[in-house]
């Protein structure tokens, strides 16, 4: 299940580079958030919460085996639109990858390339890192 209409992280990076000012990038990020696949109401439970975010974030993951290869698929959602945009980027980077592929990803470098972090408050950066850590933990557990 590729996230977001088959969009790749390169598409997003190009999209960001193309947009000049902060406001346009911000709107683009919000649009990405709107493309998240629907999240089940019944999955919005305490056990699925990612802690360390200012807003509420729920994340569910499951393992699929295809052609003998194990891949991790996950889905997440937040009550804040900006965070949904960040989740969309994380899904584009990580979703449906093998644990080994996930662990090899340098998400920091990708976020640096998007030139996004400087627009996020330090606390929101912590929230982003909390989500990345949760995903990496999943990958480690299945590696």
């Amino acid at each position: 299940m590729p996230a977001l209409d088959g969009m790749t992280i390169d598409d997003i990076t190009t999209g960001f580079e193309f947009l000049g000012d902060w406001e346009q990038r911000f709107s683009y990020l919000l649009d990405l958030g709107k493309k998240l696949p629907p999240f089940l109401e019944t999955d919005r439970i305490e056990g699925n919460k990612v802690h360390g975010c200012q807003s509420q974030v729920w994340l569910v993951a499951h393992v699929v085996t295809h052609n003998g290869k194990m891949r991790i698929e996950f889905q997440a959602v937040s009550d804040a639109h900006i965070v949904n945009g960040l989740i969309a980027i994380l899904m584009t980077i990580y979703n449906g990858k093998t644990p080994a592929e996930m662990l090899a990803i340098d998400s920091q470098a990708i976020f640096n390339r998007l030139d996004l972090e400087q627009h996020l408050s330090p606390t929101r950066r912590n929230g982003l890192h909390a989500m990345v850590q949760r995903i990496q933990k999943l990958a480690t557990e299945h590696a």
Partner: peptide
């Protein structure tokens, strides 16, 4: 309809 955390960066 707008989360407080969505307002702060704007």
């Amino acid at each position: 309809g707008i989360h407080p955390y969505d307002m702060s960066p704007v």
